[in-house]
């Protein structure tokens, strides 16, 4: 299935953007070098190799972020490990290995925030759209949309009433399906591409009640904690922790996932 829709995506992309060619040999070489360094225990060099793919070649992949996270984990730089695991998850939500390591890394940091449980229907919805990545859902939406239009065509130009009926109901059904899949596609897109989450990098930061240095400190956050960004004023961002606390901190204290 993935192969098929990847092919579809490739076809779609080829039709529109030029130069989206497959990754080049130097990138593959860097990736292998990184893994070899990691195996030898030279986590620093491994991290440098993986970072080079990001910085110099401007390419990303869930596997790359995962390996980079592992390097930082081994160097006990847990905030960076968490950041990279989270970035990996953004590209391939629900990857078991990434979730496992992220869970381990989260146990190493100071703040052990207990998340407010999500409502069950939101959990189901998320479980559904996490089954495939955003590209798959987008393509599926288009396919269903095309089917809807085709069935509409059958309805309009059908020569017999049975054909018209089939076209009409088929088109309605297909339209509803495509609306549903579009919702999943949108949610998946937001989860993958919306940069509204961040990891705290400052060792210990006092979260303020207002975007000023002089306002009251509400609570403390420590390096490695994940926050949701909901607003920004100048250099300040409004954040929300998983347990529902809100406040303002400097953008420089966090790294956006």
């Amino acid at each position: 299935m993935t192969a098929i829709y990847r092919i579809i995506i490739v076809v779609f992309w080829l039709g529109l953007s030029i130069g989206q060619n497959a990754f080049s040999a130097p990138v593959e070489k860097l990736f292998d070098q990184g893994n070899q360094s990691f195996l030898k225990g030279d986590y620093k060099n491994a991290a440098l190799n993986f970072e080079e793919i990001l910085q110099e070649h401007h390419l990303k992949s869930p596997e790359l972020y995962f390996n980079l996270g592992n390097c930082y984990f081994k160097m006990t730089d847990y905030p960076n490990a968490i950041l990279n695991y989270e970035r990996s998850l953004k590209l391939s939500s629900g990857d078991e290995d990434v979730l496992f390591n992220l869970n381990l890394a989260n146990k190493k940091i100071e703040d052990q925030i207990v998340a407010i449980p999500e409502l069950f229907y939101y959990r189901w919805f998320r479980g559904l759209y996490s089954m495939f990545d955003a590209g798959f859902w987008a393509v599926l939406t288009l396919i269903l949309w095309s089917i809807t239009v085709a069935l509409g065509f059958v309805f309009v130009l059908g020569s017999t009433s049975t054909l018209k009926k089939a076209g009409f109901y088929g088109a309605i059904f297909s339209l509803l399906m495509s609306i549903g899949v579009f919702a999943l596609s949108w949610a998946s897109h937001r989860a993958s591409y919306l940069q509204n989450e961040a990891i705290v990098f400052a060792g210990s930061v006092s979260v303020k009640s207002a975007p000023t240095e002089t306002s009251t400190g509400l609570f403390l956050l420590h390096a490695g904690s994940k926050v949701k960004i909901s607003d920004q004023i100048d250099t300040w961002v409004k954040i929300r922790t998983a347990d529902g606390n809100e406040g303002w901190i400097l953008l420089s204290d966090v790294e956006v996932i």
Binding site: L59, A134, G135, S185
Partner: peptide, 10 residues
């Protein structure tokens, strides 16, 4: 691999 600044197909 996808470009670093990839914004998604949707």
């Amino acid at each position: 691999y996808t470009p670093l600044n990839e914004q998604g197909f949707l």
